[in-house]
């Protein structure tokens, strides 16, 4: 058994090591409490709904979210808009469809099954409209950046005047959290930019937090069921392990050997 714990602690140590090497290049990001962290982490519904509002009113003019559908907005574990609300949201967008029986493309109001409408038809159009920089698709953005949610949250609030000696080209901005500090997206958020229907004050910090929460959900839509299932699975495994441990002791007691 002693030997066994040696192995077990070795595995834990290894896991710890692998985590620490991942976090090699450390930047101190802004900290905030994320409701979705931890063993029982869940999304804050109101924050997700507000975050969706920020995305739609601010980000969506340049950033697509091609893996999301309007139906996702009403799904469990997400912003959980009611079906009616989600239908109304979908219907407020013009979706290109077709070809119809005459072979023409046409537009119609969106349905739940439609994907989020994209701001540009293709990457080239997006680049052309943004000075050559492609505004990345935001569906899995949180998972595609080393710092995850903390990075996005910090980046949105990290705009400042460049320090002396740093010369910026036209259309390039200084952001202290951006890799290399130069970013082609201008500062988008300012206090009171959106008007939250739930009365929350739309400070830059609040909006950053809300939209980052929304992005976390869009990257990991099943996070809540993952956490719930994980807890059950691990509790179950511990119970079975204990049962098997005592069965093992019982079986090995037939012979004179420690196990």
């Amino acid at each position: 058994m002693k030997n066994f714990f040696k192995i077990f602690s070795f595995i834990i140590l290894f896991s710890g090591l692998s985590l620490s090497t991942q976090a090699a290049e450390k930047v101190e990001y802004l900290k905030t409490d994320w409701s979705f962290k931890g063993l029982f982490g869940k999304f804050d519904r109101a924050a997700l709904q507000r975050g969706y509002q920020v995305y739609t009113e601010v980000c969506s003019s340049c950033h697509s979210m091609k893996y999301l559908s309007y139906r996702n907005l009403a799904e469990k574990g997400g912003p959980e808009f009611s079906i009616e609300q989600a239908k109304a949201i979908a219907a407020s967008f013009e979706v290109k469809d077709g070809p119809n029986s005459d072979g023409d493309m046409f537009t119609r109001p969106g349905r739940l099954s439609d994907k989020f409408v994209m701001p540009y038809d293709n990457v080239q159009a997006a680049q052309a409209a943004n000075g050559g920089a492609y505004p990345p698709d935001m569906s899995v953005l949180v998972k595609a950046r080393g710092g995850g949610v903390d990075y996005i949250y910090s980046l949105l609030q990290g705009y400042e005047d460049p320090p002396a000696g740093v010369i910026l080209d036209d259309g390039v901005y200084y952001n202290k959290y951006m890799y290399g500090n130069k970013i082609k997206m201008a500062n988008q958020l300012s206090d009171g930019l959106v008007e939250y229907s739930d009365g929350t004050i739309a400070s830059v910090e609040q909006m950053s937090k809300d939209v980052t929460t929304f992005l976390m959900w869009s990257a990991e839509p099943h996070l809540e069921s993952r956490h719930q299932m994980g807890f059950k699975a691990i509790v179950y495994l511990i119970i079975l392990t204990i049962l098997v441990y005592f069965s093992m002791k019982r079986i090995w007691s037939r012979i004179e050997t420690e196990v």
């Binding site: 595995i11 834990i12 985590l19 991942q22 994980g230 511990i238 392990t241 098997v244 069965s247 090995w252």
Partner: peptide
């Protein structure tokens, strides 16, 4: 004898495995 012992070790291994899958799947 060995089946149950392997089974016990496997379960401990699965607990670590499950922790990765459910709580830090992308780490």
């Amino acid at each position: 004898y060995i089946v149950i012992k392997d089974g016990f070790a496997l379960l401990m291994f699965m607990i670590v495995f499950a922790f990765f899958v459910f709580y830090t799947p992308n780490i």
